[in-house]
Design a protein around this nucleic acid. Structure first.
Length: 573
RNA sequence: GCGCCUGUAGCUCAGCUGGAUAGAGCAACGGACUUCUAAUCCGUAGGCCGCAGGUUCGAAUCCUGCCAGGCGCGCCA
């Protein structure tokens, strides 16, 4: 409908502007006014044209109204305020969306347009395989998963990918930590150096490795021998834990990409050679970092990527002093690999602490692929964990580190997911463990779920009262007269549900999945408000029928929205 | 010092590719369950939209500067 109106206006503009060949025709964008008196849709096109045409917005709007040919559904339109064109639709035409929703079911709001579909690689979480995920990872995980759902809902082909940083010095630390615990489990007394990972999970992994490996044989090896022998199992042990934790909040990846693979297959080396051939690499010395104390800074000549030529602030090293590739070098190879795998688009979701990394990766990709094939990077801000308003101190050493799994086990997947989705990723998020468990107004997830459960209760009640089962759960509803839905709250619900596809579309365009959460909260609020003022099941058969259809639609749209967010819609609460 | 993010009601946040009177929840106060779920609803009160300039017919929204908070700033990932 919105589109039909926009086209009608666009057509009128073309006609009007035919005599002004130099004036560019602005795109018509309609929005839904906050106030009902301002009609169902409003257009502001007349205002930006005022200056070009040197006539008042009101005059232009009047000319548009004389020219435009409205679709049938339009009741009328008038000029209001400084030059808005307010459009009113025939009442019944909007309510037909209810029948559309029932017919489409889970598909309502989704689109499947092959022509605009993109093959998208969405990389998220990518937590190091050296320990459990914390709540910050959890936020990224939930945001990424919901975004994948949003993008798929508008027809894209999305691959969820996890990049395993299973290379570098941290793997040595991990392996050594596991080995220390293995020795300990064998009754030897060991001392833990400062850098080692002390966590309980290391003991778990150590236990498993003792079952699989010959302890005495390992003991006879030197450190590098042991690294070869057990590091992969240590990593696998961690990744199993991470996958379990992700599964506990309903997240599954399509693909796990190993950094180690990039190194062992020679792709990192090849990439560096290619960059050298392209002349964007040189040997040089970087200035000391500003504003940060680097006590052991020594000017060292190293292999540098000329990223400053492509928008970065300083050039970046590709190799460490010992000659091995930096994380950055591998990451370029990784993004290049994604590109070669044929994705139209890549999206990375990172924690805010990696914000300083964005420019260099985008610069590197710009240098490497001679077109704009950079990843869209979404930075997710930090999560501050609190309990009853007091910050939960997070310290690995003191053992007060709270894992994502602990939080999920304590408050539940639905509450965690929904709360993580109620804010834009740019704002820091305060997550209170006690508030998230409360089943009241402080917790938006139950507010929305309650609306759904409440509708199911009404439908059960309606069936008890003898309302036709076909009406309650069937699809043969074509003959229901919807013109009886005249109450203010009913029209609000209808027009709100009509906007659901637009919400999804906007969420996908702007990569902002949280919009779905705010949408379902508002829809739930409209429903609760309707519920208190209007009775669904009544003596009036025609009204009952229409209202049953109305609330079924609300339940469907809430369910569809929650499903995008990965949150359940319970039948009763 | 430099880069990125944030600053809106007492608190937590929407509203941000300019548009009509800046919204919601919590907290405060006052109401609503003999009637489909009160995990709900209705009402009252609460605002130099961080500050100062600028652009514009129109600025919470765009630009510049400043202030405050968060994150980051070579050979970690």
């Amino acid at each position: 409908m919105k589109q039909a109106l926009e086209e009608a206006l666009q057509q009128a503009l073309l006609t009007l502007l035919a005599e002004h060949p130099d004036a560019s025709v602005p795109a018509v964008v309609l929005n839904r006014p906050k106030q009902k008196e301002h009609g169902d849709y409003a257009a502001n096109v007349a205002m930006p044209l005022a200056r070009i045409l040197k006539r008042s917005p009101q005059q232009i709007a009047a000319a548009i109204l004389e020219t435009v040919v409205w679709p049938d559904a339009v009741e009328g339109a008038e000029i209001a305020g400084p030059g808005f064109i307010n459009i009113r639709l025939k009442q019944a035409s909007e309510a037909t969306v209810l029948k559309t929703i029932i017919a489409a079911g889970e598909q309502y709001g989704r689109v499947d347009v092959a022509a605009t579909a993109e093959k998208i690689n969405l990389e998220f979480v990518s937590a190091n395989p050296t320990g459990p995920m914390h709540v910050g990872h959890g936020r990224g995980a939930v945001v990424g998963d919901a975004l994948a759902n949003v993008l798929m809902a508008v027809g894209h082909d999305v691959q969820r990918e996890y990049y395993i940083n299973d290379a570098g010095a941290q793997i040595g630390v991990l392996t050594n930590s596991v080995w220390l615990r293995m020795q300990e489990l064998q009754g030897e007394s060991v001392e833990f150096p400062d850098g080692a990972y002390p966590g309980e999970y290391i003991i778990q992994i150590a236990r498993e490795l003792l079952l699989k490996h010959d302890y005495q044989a390992l003991k006879a090896m030197d450190e590098s021998g042991r690294l070869k022998a057990i590091s992969q199992d240590a990593i696998d042990g961690n990744m199993t834990m991470i996958r379990d934790d992700l599964a506990a909040i309903g997240i599954n990846f399509d693909f796990f990409f190993s950094e180690q693979d990039l190194h062992s297959s020679g792709r990192v080396t090849t990439l560096i050679e290619q960059l050298q051939a392209d002349g964007v690499v040189y040997r040089g010395t970087l200035p000391p970092p500003k504003g940060k104390e680097v006590s052991d800074y020594r000017p060292v000549e190293q292999l540098l990527f000329r990223t400053t030529d492509f928008g970065d602030d300083v050039d970046r090293p590709l190799a460490k002093q010992d000659g091995t590739a930096t994380y950055f070098a591998a990451d370029i190879a990784y993004h290049f690999d994604k590109h070669q795998r044929g994705f139209d688009r890549m999206i990375d979701i990172w924690g805010a602490d990696h914000g300083g990394y964005v420019k260099r990766v985008q610069a590197a990709m710009k240098a490497l692929i001679h077109r704009e094939a950079q990843p869209d990077v979404i930075l997710v801000q930090m999560v501050n964990l609190t309990r009853d308003g007091k910050p939960v101190k997070m310290s690995k050493r003191a053992g007060t580190f709270v894992t994502l799994r602990e939080v999920v086990d304590e408050v539940g997947s639905d509450a965690v997911r929904f709360n993580f989705m109620t804010r834009r990723v740019e704002s820091q998020l305060d997550f209170d463990l006690e508030a998230a468990k409360k089943k009241n107004d402080e917790n938006p997830v139950y507010y929305v779920q309650y609306a759904y459960a409440r509708i199911q209760a009404i439908l059960r009640k309606a069936l008890d009262e003898g309302v036709d089962a076909e009406l309650i759960s069937g699809s043969d509803i074509a003959n229901i007269d919807l013109s009886v839905l005249t109450a203010h709250e009913e029209q609000r619900l209808v027009s709100h549900m009509l906007a659901y596809p637009d919400t999804l579309k906007k969420a996908a365009e702007r990569l902002e999945a949280y919009r779905v959460a705010t949408y379902v909260m508002r829809l739930a609020a409209d429903f609760h408000s309707f519920y208190h003022k209007n009775r669904v099941v009544s003596d009036d058969a025609a009204l009952t029928a229409a209202r049953v259809l109305l609330i079924r639609s609300v339940a469907q749209v809430i369910s569809n929205g929650l499903s995008i967010l990965g949150v359940s819609a319970p039948e009763r609460m």
